[in-house]
Design a protein around this nucleic acid. Structure first.
Lengths: 212, 212
DNA sequence: GAGGTCTTCCGCCGCACGGTGGAGGGACTT
DNA sequence: AAGTCCCTCCACCGTGCGGCGGAAGACCTC
């Protein structure tokens, strides 16, 4: 059932969880146009394996114990501009997706993906296309019109998620409370929310700030 | 390296993700005292498979498309009081853990678990013991001393996570705003937090309320 | 040097939020 | 019948929050 021009898609799987790696290997084993030629359990290892085996496609987990997935994508993208990379995460926060695509990934999948979605994504991306599930595209679109937060605003948003009051944030950052209020106010406007609670939930949902 | 008295642990794996199921099958394949004798992709199917195959241990995903994992655990527990069940989730919110253990599970694992943790948990629980990772036990302990929220308080907490103001909540539930304030105040005290933002984050982190 | 963004800070204002104390009624167990 | 818990509502009060306008220095790019 191969529609690809190449005989076989040679795959590199980078994920620090053995369970998931073998799951992927088993899933693509049934497809005769895809084969896993290398595995990696960390970011740095993934880059090494890429250089050594030159795969047609790389599946990259973003959150790994040894070596960041984002950095690995950037490194591979720097080595080969046209490298076909699909990012993988358990979580579908749009922050991760945006960063992964910016780093050079051409596809995005959550680990909740079905085998069909997985092989579909592998074929599309290896042929030079893009693959982002429609549900995730919708979330991404909501962020499009939104202004980006400044460094300070993002820092203060993080402290809001930590449950800190304006006065506490001022003391944390050693600035005046009035300054904090300005940043909070600007952040709320940029995010399009009414108050800090909505901002905190939004930040967590989209993966802008990790849950404390 | 089998310390179990039984020759082989017969396993039932219930999870709606093919990738994960095969991952588990592969992982335990290397262990000569464990074998997967049945698989299920949903809650109801899991109960059927349990009755048909009478496994020594059941791995049960809590969040499945077809049939709730909690209900399936309760059903199996009702059939066999001593059934060995390990609950599985991607997320480690303590609310899920508490509910799973209450339903009759004797173990808890996140899907981030290593193969070692998995087989360790399988052996311990099949021998009649309990298995809850120490990191998760710590989180569970924090909930111990806490008062439980009333139905109304929990309902209002959910609306707080939805970003609703006191006035909006009053309108949503068709009660006076003063009443809402009483419930909010009581909920904050019970949860041991200062304001609604901290309550919202806590509720999300512990899985008491799903992210909107 | 002009324009832009980011950061810092001020005062003022209105309202939402959270705490306190009190009170009545419904549903439950003992 | 008494006790307990929950839900409901009131009034009052202090403070935290968020919006407004204004301003100044730092650091960019053009």
């Amino acid at each position: 059932m191969s529609t690809s021009s190449s005989t076989s898609i040679r795959l590199l799987v980078a994920d620090d969880h053995f369970l998931f790696r073998t799951g992927v290997v088993n899933a693509v084993e049934m497809e005769d146009d895809i084969e896993v030629i290398a595995e990696a359990a960390g970011g740095n290892e993934a880059v090494e394996q890429y250089q050594q085996h030159q795969p047609n496609l790389t599946l990259m987990d973003l959150r790994m114990e040894h070596g960041d997935g984002f950095e690995a994508i950037k490194s591979i993208h720097a080595i080969d501009e046209k490298a076909a990379i699909i990012a993988l995460t358990t979580y579908d926060g749009s922050e991760d997706i945006q960063r992964a695509l910016k780093a050079g990934a051409r596809g995005y999948l959550t680990k909740e993906a079905t085998t069909e979605e997985l092989v579909d994504a592998i074929r599309k991306v290896s042929e030079g296309g893009f693959y982002v599930p429609s549900a995730i595209r919708t979330r991404l679109a909501a962020r499009e019109g939104r202004e980006t937060l400044s460094r300070r605003e993002h820092e203060i948003l993080t402290l809001i998620v930590r449950g800190r009051s304006n006065k506490e944030i001022a003391s944390d950052l050693e600035i005046a409370e009035t300054t904090v209020k300005v940043h909070v106010s600007n952040a709320l406007r940029k995010l399009g929310v009414m108050d800090r609670t909505q901002a905190a939930i939004l930040a967590v949902r989209e993966g802008m700030v990790a849950v404390p």
